[in-house]
Design a protein around this nucleic acid. Structure first.
Length: 305
DNA sequence: TTGTGTTTTATTGCCTCC
DNA sequence: GGAGGCAATAAAACACAA
């Protein structure tokens, strides 16, 4: 590298005024003219790197030293890089801001739903306390000794599905998606032969026969001290009764009282029970009546009545 | 006019490639 | 080892408000 003075002498600045005469070096740093800059910009757009031949040619055309052209390209590349970084940063920041906004929206939504669940649980606990005052002699359906709410006690893996007997009932979500499991029943039943000390059972774990399954469901429907399930009467209740297949797919029993008002839309659907003719000609609406005791007394323990 | 911030031109030192 | 690129920096030129 040359010193500035020596470089200036070597460059031999022209009419732009850097070297006014040999031996008298101007200390002034001259800016390039507008036309020179325009020409350089044009060349830079074509190719931002400068081959030696092009450098010399351009320098001759613009009346500059090759070194000046090289320096200009060098600085121009640096400016371009800075601008490019700023653009990239702007894009990334915009993306980040959009994602952040979305995240915050979801977080607020999440908090709102969490609060809603908390309120519903509180309400459910209050309802339970009221119920327990009214029905004095009834056993607790779910162990509530630790003060947990019913929702806490409902095990996810107790989906009311009884595969072996082709018996299943599901909670159908409001959007009608039958594959979406939104809840399950923790069953309290007594089949008359079971040990009284262990009166609760999870349907898909503890029931060994379709008959037990049915009796279990009836037990839930009629004997739940917590009104764990409430089956509707009326036209929607067991509107389709094929006793040979026990096809309950059209009957939808409301679980309104189970998990509070917000869950009223969740409905219990008896999908199918095949190959078992348990009920003869008996009406399903009678079976699931709130007012009447179950007529399937031959499946029910005395405590159910 | 002057102080200050920005832009442009140029230098320096280091690195890579051939 | 020389040429050329790049990052960092110096310094002149420029813009502009007070």
């Amino acid at each position: 590298m040359y010193t500035r003075d020596f470089q200036t002498i070597l460059d031999g600045y022209d009419e732009e005024g850097c070297v006014e005469e040999i031996g008298h070096v101007s200390e002034k740093k001259r800016r390039l003219s507008v036309d020179q800059v325009k020409a350089l910009e044009k060349n830079f757009e074509v190719e931002n790197k400068l081959e030696p031949e092009r450098k010399v040619k351009l320098a001759q055309e613009l009346g500059l030293q090759p070194r000046q052209v090289a320096v200009w390209f060098q600085n121009r590349r640096a400016r371009y890089k800075t601008k490019q970084l700023e653009r990239d940063y702007g894009i990334l920041k915009a993306n980040y801001d959009a994602l952040k906004h979305k995240y915050e929206t979801l977080q607020r939504e999440n908090e709102s739903l969490t609060n809603e669940i908390r309120e519903m649980k509180l309400k459910l606990n209050e309802d339970d306390k009221t119920d327990s005052k009214i029905s004095v002699k009834e056993e607790p359906l779910v162990s509530d000794t630790e003060g947990k709410s019913k929702l806490d006690e409902i095990p996810i893996n107790s989906l009311a599905k009884y595969d072996e007997a082709d018996f299943e009932f599901n909670f159908e979500s409001p959007n009608g998606n039958k594959n979406e499991v939104i809840g399950s029943v923790f069953c309290d039943f007594k089949d008359g032969s079971s040990d009284d000390s262990d009166s609760s059972a999870i349907l898909n774990e503890d029931i060994n026969s379709p008959i037990a399954a049915i009796s279990s469901s009836v037990g839930i429907l009629h004997n739940s001290p917590h009104q764990f399930l409430e089956i509707q009467n009326g036209p929607n209740s067991c509107s389709s009764m094929d006793m040979n297949n026990f096809q309950f797919s059209e009957s939808k029993a409301s679980c309104a009282s189970m998990i509070g008002d917000a869950h009223k839309a969740y409905q219990l659907q008896f999908v199918k029970i095949e190959e078992h003719n348990f009920f003869g000609e008996e009406s399903c609406s009678t079976l699931f009546s709130d007012d009447q005791a179950p007529t399937l007394h031959w499946y029910c323990s005395d405590e159910w009545n």
